[in-house]
């Protein structure tokens, strides 16, 4: 089976072959960029990633069969131009998530409220992460890269990826835990009132 490295090698002789890489990964890059910075940025980042990748295909490390870390690395660089939009989206989600939630079951309302609060807390915590920590954890969670893949994408040693991941996970965990504590306190308060 042809791997990404083969496609990139082939594109030296026959440049149009590079479009095979686009067909394989354009959607993946688009969805990642969309989640991070919205539709308008996603279109630019997706197109820009493959144009830059084509131009820089000689820099691809053929020790890797998989081009995803390389492509996500390029996309990550391009997404830095959209950091304001990303922050704005996360803040809007933190404020507005779930305001469209409607249901007629009390049990479902409770579940929805939990989901709304969790989404808000996570979006806010993501927004507060340093840019490199946020890139790292999102490449892991949304782009499904391995630690080694993230190291290649962001051009840092794997040890640095581990420490960034630990830091980011701890902060998100703290945000979720703070939410749980608040909820438990609130539940406790209600129990006392009804007792």
């Amino acid at each position: 089976m042809t791997n990404d490295s083969d496609i990139i090698r082939r594109s030296r002789e026959r440049p149009a072959a590079f479009a095979e890489l686009y067909d394989k990964y354009a959607r993946m890059i688009y969805r990642y960029a969309f989640r991070r910075a919205g539709e308008s940025a996603a279109e630019d980042v997706m197109a820009g990633t493959f144009l830059a990748a084509f131009e820089g295909r000689d820099s691809f490390d053929h020790a890797w069969d998989d081009a995803r870390p390389w492509l996500f690395g390029i996309a990550t660089n391009l997404l830095r131009r959209h950091h304001r939009t990303e922050a704005k989206i996360l803040k809007i989600i933190a404020k507005s998530s779930g305001r469209d939630a409607y249901t007629d079951s009390t049990e479902q309302i409770a579940e929805q409220l939990d989901a709304i609060a969790t989404t808000s807390a996570l979006a806010l915590a993501l927004c507060k992460l340093s840019p490199v920590d946020r890139e790292c954890i999102l490449l892991y969670a949304w782009a499904d890269l391995t630690y080694e893949g993230i190291a290649q994408a962001t051009n840092v040693p794997v040890g640095t990826v581990r420490s960034r991941m630990n830091r980011a996970r701890r902060k998100l965990k703290d945000a979720a835990a703070a939410l749980r504590n608040n909820t438990e306190e609130a539940d406790h308060g209600r129990t006392q009132v009804t007792a």
Binding site: R31, R35, E39, T118, T119, I137, K173
Partner: peptide, 17 residues
């Protein structure tokens, strides 16, 4: 719930490309 699982489920996603 695991924070990575929560993050993966964070709904900022357009369903179709």
């Amino acid at each position: 719930m695991d924070e990575l699982k929560l993050l993966r489920e964070l709904r900022i996603e357009h369903p179709t490309v």
